[in-house]
Design a protein around this nucleic acid. Structure first.
Lengths: 127, 127
DNA sequence: CTAAACCTTAGTGCGCGCTCTAAGTCAAGC
DNA sequence: GCTTGACTTAGAGCGCGCACTAAGGTTTAG
C-alpha cells in the first residue's frame, strides 16, 4: 500500500503562511531580502504563487534561522544555490562553518546553564 | 599551604570592564537598566567604584545573558534580590522557568541542526 | 453596482541590546 | 596654569528581524 501525499500546488501567500508558520509579511520580507528567488506570479494580477519546492526551501530556511544563522548568510547561501553546481563546495563550507559555530555555542550555553543550575541548587537548600 | 587569592577592591569602570569582559558602556547601561543597584561612588568626583561582590554578580548576569535571558527578566530578578529573603521562592521559580525554556530551546536547536547536518551529508555525497 | 476580502508596493516603526556622541567635571603631571 | 585623560550624564544611533501602515488594484459574493 503506497501512501500518496497530497501536495498543495499554487498556494497563495496566505496559504503559504499557514503551511510554513511564517506570516505573509515575513514571506514578502524574505523575498525582498534575497532568500527566495523565483516566486511565480499570476500574470493577470501579480499575485505570488508558491509550490512544493518553495515549501521545502522555506522549511530549510527555518532550520537555518532556528539555529541562529543571520538573514545575510542565508542570502549568501541562496545566491550560491542559484549560481549553479560549481558552488556546491562553497555551500558545503558555509553549512559546515555554521554547524561548527552552533555546536560551539551549544557548549557555551550548556556551561552557563550549569551555573544557573548550581544557583538553583543553592536556593533549594534554603527551602 | 593556603592559597590566598588577591581580590581587587574599588575598581574603576575601566578596570571592571577588563575584569568582566563587558564594555564600560555596557556596565553603565546595565546599571541604568536596573541590573546593578548599589554601585558605590567616590564622594569627591562621583566615579563608580566596583568591588568583588559586583564582579561575582556581573559574572552571574553573564550566565543569564549567555543563556538568553532578556534584560527585563534579569532586572526582575535583581529587584527580587533587593527585596530581601522573602523573595527566595520567587527567584527560585524564575530561574527554574528559565532553565526549562533554555533546555527546551537546546532541544529545538539540536533538532534543526540535525537537518543541517543531513544537508551537509547530502552535499558530501556529491564530492 | 457595491462591498468585502484578497492581493500589491514602498516605506515606517518597533523591541532588543548595546554602542557611541557631546558636553562637561575632575585629578595628575609638566 | 594648562594639558591630558579618565570619568560623568543625557540622549542619539545602529543592526537585526520582523510587523505594520497607507494607498491602491483585483476578484468574488450578494
Amino acid at each position: 500500500m503506497v501512501m500518496q501525499q497530497v501536495v498543495p500546488e499554487n498556494l497563495t501567500i496566505q496559504q503559504m503562511a499557514q503551511v510554513t508558520g511564517l506570516s505573509a509579511h515575513t514571506l514578502r520580507y524574505y523575498e525582498r531580502a534575497g532568500l527566495l528567488d523565483l516566486v511565480d506570479r499570476n500574470q493577470q494580477n501579480g499575485y505570488r504563487y508558491y509550490n512544493e519546492r518553495h515549501i521545502k526551501w522555506i522549511h530549510f530556511i527555518k532550520c537555518l534561522r532556528a539555529t541562529g544563522m543571520p538573514i545575510r548568510d542565508i542570502r549568501r547561501y541562496t545566491e550560491l544555490l542559484y549560481e549553479g553546481d560549481h558552488t556546491v563546495r562553497d555551500r558545503l563550507n558555509l553549512l559546515k562553518a555554521h554547524r561548527q559555530r552552533v555546536e560551539q555555542q551549544l557548549l557555551e550555553v550548556k556551561e552557563h546553564l550549569e551555573a544557573v543550575t548550581r544557583k538553583i541548587g543553592y536556593y533549594e537548600t534554603l527551602d
